[in-house]
C-alpha cells in the first residue's frame, strides 16, 4: 500500500496543529494538503485519502462555507460516499446531523454523521478541562511518550455527543462514569469511515489518535 495524502480543511482554527501531527507519522503519511476553497477541493479530491475537519469556531467555518458552495457540497458528498473524514470539536459539530445550542437562527452544516451534538456542552472557557481518556481503540498502539495508555483529553469549550441515532454509529470514547452510576458523556464516535471527537488530540504530544484515523484511511483505500 502506497503512503497516504491527507487533506486538512484550513478555513479557520487549529489546522496547522493537525498537519504537524500527521507529519509525525512519516511511515504512513506521505503528505498533507490544506483545503481553503472550492477550487482547492476540486484540485485535490481525487488524490487525497482522507480529510480532517479541525477545531475552531464552527459558526465561523459555517459562514465561510456558505460562500464556498463547491467545497460545502463536495464535503457533503465525501461523507455520503463513506470516505474517511475526521472532525475534531468544531469539525464534529459540522459533521453532526443535529446540533443543539447553536447561535440564534441556526448554522449551516455538512451533516451525515447520525448523532446529536450539543455545542459548548460544558460551558465557558473557565469550564474547559484536561482529563486522561481511556480509549480501547488506540491501546493496541502501546503507551504514549509519557508511558500512559490513556490519551490526554483536551476539552476546550467542547461539545458532547448527546445521542447516537442508530447502531451504525459506534461509541469510541466516553468520559469516566459518575459516582451515581451514570455513564459518562460520549466524546468520540465512528460511523463507518467517519470519525468525530469533541477533544483535541492535535493539542497534545500523543499521536495515537491521529494514527487511528490514518489507519481508517488506509483500510478504506485498500
Amino acid at each position: 500500500m502506497a503512503k497516504l495524502t491527507i487533506g486538512v480543511v484550513a478555513l479557520q482554527g487549529a489546522f496547522s496543529e493537525h498537519i504537524f501531527m500527521l507529519q509525525r507519522l512519516p511511515d504512513l503519511v506521505q503528505g498533507t494538503v490544506e483545503i481553503r476553497s472550492s477550487e482547492d477541493f476540486d484540485r485535490v479530491k481525487d488524490s487525497i485519502h482522507g480529510i480532517v475537519l479541525p477545531g475552531g469556531e464552527s459558526t465561523t467555518m459555517a459562514i465561510i462555507l456558505e460562500r464556498e458552495a463547491g467545497l460545502r457540497n463536495g464535503l457533503k458528498q465525501w461523507v455520503q460516499d463513506g470516505k474517511p473524514i475526521w472532525g475534531t470539536c468544531a469539525g464534529l459539530i459540522m459533521l453532526a446531523d443535529t446540533i443543539t445550542s447553536t447561535k440564534k437562527g441556526g448554522q449551516t452544516q455538512i451533516g451525515g454523521l447520525r448523532v446529536t451534538v450539543q455545542r459548548n456542552a460544558f460551558g465557558r472557557q473557565s469550564d474547559s478541562f484536561e482529563v486522561p481518556l481511556s480509549i480501547p481503540a488506540i491501546e493496541s498502539y502501546g503507551a504514549n511518550l509519557e508511558g500512559s495508555l490513556a490519551l490526554p483529553g483536551v476539552f476546550i469549550r467542547a461539545p458532547v455527543i448527546e445521542s447516537v441515532h442508530d447502531e451504525g454509529v459506534v461509541v469510541v470514547a466516553r468520559l469516566q462514569g459518575r459516582e451515581d452510576g451514570k455513564e459518562g458523556e460520549i466524546v468520540a464516535v465512528k460511523q463507518g469511515n467517519v470519525l468525530g471527537s469533541s477533544f483535541h488530540p492535535e493539542l497534545t504530544s500523543d499521536v495515537r489518535f491521529h494514527r487511528y484515523f490514518v489507519d481508517i484511511c488506509r483500510d478504506a483505500n485498500k
Binding site: 487549529a14 489546522f15 465561523t60 472557557q125 474547559s128 482529563v131 486522561p132 493539542l203 497534545t204 500523543d206
Partner: peptide, 27 residues
C-alpha cells in the same frame, strides 16, 4: 499533558489557555 494521574480533571492549565487561542487562529 497536565492532566493528573489519578484521572481527575485539570482546569486552567496552559494547554487549555493557549489551546483556546490556537482554535481562534485564522479568525
Amino acid at each position: 499533558p497536565a492532566a493528573t494521574a489519578n484521572g481527575a480533571a485539570a482546569k486552567s492549565t496552559f494547554v487549555l489557555k493557549a489551546g483556546l487561542a490556537q482554535n481562534l487562529k485564522g479568525g
